[in-house]
């Protein structure tokens, strides 16, 4: 069993008369410790696929199994619990809670897990340390630069030690220097912390830094020039 198994997933949007189908029977497997980049034209459906795997959107058909759970079958409430335990989500724009400090923002996912206050404290400190923001713990989002906010966002995504970390254009709104910082940080998350990473990006340089590079073209997933098949077909 792979860590993530996307099988025959289709996503349709009804747009008046016509139907938009950004994903048409796509399949993808991601192994523990993978670092996958997902590229493709704007509007091709990259975010859609990422959101399906992150469990914040619903597929029209198909199966998505993450760490042995078929998340397409979970209720809204159960799916939320599942996200808390398994998903770290890095947004394009940080999306920090403005009324909470860096520390409190990072602590947020841990509040949803059964954990002692001491354990929470330890984990938040480690996460802030990992993104090199220990000195900014008490700062509010408006007191930080875009790059610093994004690093807090990354700390928040990794703090609960999720099964999969997903990132939707994490460097999309940053300058070159900060982009480089963030990419290095993501590499460390993958290498040193051993976390599985799926990153959607527009930036070819950023995409090429990943271990696996997948393109989404005309509603199909392409890796190394070949279309990805369902897990069973691939092993056959």
């Amino acid at each position: 069993m792979s860590l993530v198994e996307v099988s025959n997933v289709t996503k349709e949007y009804a747009n008046g008369e016509e139907t938009i189908r950004p994903l048409d029977g796509v399949s993808l497997t991601i192994e523990q410790g993978d670092y996958v980049s997902l590229m493709g034209a704007s509007g091709s459906g990259k975010s859609t696929l990422l959101n399906l795997i992150a469990g914040i959107d619903r597929a029209t058909s198909g199966e998505i199994v993450v760490a042995d759970t078929d998340i397409t079958k979970l209720s809204r409430g159960k799916l939320a619990d599942w996200r808390a335990a398994h998903i770290g989500y890095i947004f394009q724009t940080h999306n920090l809670i403005p009324v909470l400090t860096a520390y409190e923002n990072v602590e947020l996912p841990l509040l949803l897990l059964p954990m002692s206050a001491a354990e929470r404290r330890k984990r938040v400190e480690i996460a802030l340390e990992a993104v090199d923001l220990t000195s900014r713990a008490t700062h509010y989002p408006r007191q930080m630069s875009g790059g610093q906010e994004q690093r807090v966002g990354i700390a928040r995504a990794i703090v609960a030690n999720p099964t999969v970390v997903v990132a939707d254009e994490p460097t999309g709104s940053l300058d070159d220097e900060t982009t480089e910082q963030i990419l290095q940080l993501l590499e460390r998350v993958n290498n040193e912390l051993g976390m599985t990473l799926l990153m959607v990006t527009h930036d070819a340089d950023a995409g090429s830094r990943a271990k696996r590079r997948i393109r989404l073209e005309r509603s199909r997933l392409i890796e190394n020039g070949k279309e990805l098949q369902t897990a069973t077909l691939r092993t056959a």
Binding site: D81, I87, Y89
Partner: peptide, 15 residues
């Protein structure tokens, strides 16, 4: 609206 969506993404139940 967005803040609540972020909270839900992090894993807050709708309830």
């Amino acid at each position: 609206i967005k803040e609540h969506a972020v909270l839900q993404t992090v894993g807050l139940r709708p309830l």
